[in-house]
């Protein structure tokens, strides 16, 4: 029983990331509305980010900003701080993510103007005409 409990609490973050990943993928592929597809893309992206940051977590560690002793010496114990590398990668990825969202929304507005709809099947019909 303890083993099972330990197994669950040592993996649940990965499971959540995978579930969110496939919810996002479902939105991107199956939903008919382009706005929903874009929201699916946002969810897909955050699932990957969640997975990345999960890798950097360390038990008993604090934020990756160095602590100083009273005589101004930094505490340089790697085990005391969370892994900073995933944080850096994800921080920039979030900002690029909003740039991608902006481009996607601009394309969406353009599609609306040209085809008069953002429903996938209606756009395909309009293009066949």
């Amino acid at each position: 029983m303890d083993d099972l409990f330990y197994f669950i609490i040592s993996k649940y973050n990965y499971w959540a990331a995978i579930i969110l990943l496939f919810i996002g993928l479902y939105g991107m592929i199956v939903r008919n509305n382009l706005m929903k597809k874009i929201i699916g893309m946002v969810i897909f992206q955050t699932a990957i980010l969640l997975f990345f940051v999960s890798i950097g977590v360390k038990r008993g560690a604090t934020v990756p900003i160095l602590k100083f002793s009273p005589d101004k010496q930094p505490l340089l114990d790697a085990a005391a701080y969370a892994n900073p590398l995933p944080h850096v990668l994800i921080l920039t990825a979030i900002v690029v993510g909003v740039a991608v969202l902006g481009v996607a929304l601009a394309l969406l507005q353009k599609i609306q103007r040209v085809h008069g709809t953002i429903e996938e099947d209606e756009i395909l019909e309009d293009m066949r005409k």
Binding site: V63, P64, I65, V98
Partner: peptide, 13 residues
């Protein structure tokens, strides 16, 4: 998860 810089960016962006 102690990723405060990431949280800050996420809240703003």
């Amino acid at each position: 998860m102690m990723a405060v810089d990431v949280a800050f960016t996420e809240a703003a962006v």
